[in-house]
């Protein structure tokens, strides 16, 4: 698991770059560190991500920094995010899982009802941008996939 030297190295990354949040997953476990200790606010994605076009009904958009290879899945609902499959109690997906188009990858709980978050593309889970239980708004990026 992480030792003090690792933690110090991670802190240096915060100090010397624009990074605000780091999530690291290893076979031993997962570590998430947030700059300043504040949880992500309920706001739209950072400026680097493009606004979803008004006519986009799929709730997804290619990420700005990699036009074709990375796909960003966005929320179609306002509610609370969960990656848990309510029937099995397990996460639907983890980082580096491969998903097919049409797979349920998460839910947004809207007024007590679980709405399905469905993968629009086939790809590998590159990043999960929302924490378990976090409030989420319409259009907020949820995950990025490598196509």
């Amino acid at each position: 698991m992480f030792n003090v030297k690792d933690m110090k190295e991670i802190q240096d990354i915060f100090k010397t770059s624009d990074v605000g949040e780091i999530e690291i997953e290893t076979p031993e476990g997962r570590l998430r560190m947030v700059m300043g200790g504040k949880p992500a606010p309920v706001k739209a994605a950072p400026a680097a991500a493009p606004a979803a076009p008004a006519q986009d009904n799929t709730g997804g958009a290619p990420a700005k920094d990699s036009p074709d290879s990375v796909y960003e899945l966005r929320s179609k609902w306002v509610g609370f995010f969960t990656r848990l499959n309510t029937k099995t109690g397990e996460y639907y997906i983890k980082l580096r899982d491969t998903v097919k188009k049409g797979d349920i990858v998460a839910h947004v709980r809207v007024l007590g009802i679980m709405q399905d978050v469905i993968a629009d593309v086939e790809g590998k889970v590159k990043e999960i941008l929302i924490e378990e239980g976090q409030p989420i708004e319409y259009g907020q990026p949820i995950m990025r996939f490598e196509k």
Binding site: W77, V78, L111, Y138
Partner: peptide
């Protein structure tokens, strides 16, 4: 502030579930 839907009013400012959820 919370984004609740796309531009057309029926999908945003008139969408009751999205507003109550917000």
């Amino acid at each position: 502030d919370i984004c609740i839907g796309p531009a057309p009013s029926p999908e945003s400012y008139l969408k009751i579930p999205a507003i109550i959820s917000a």
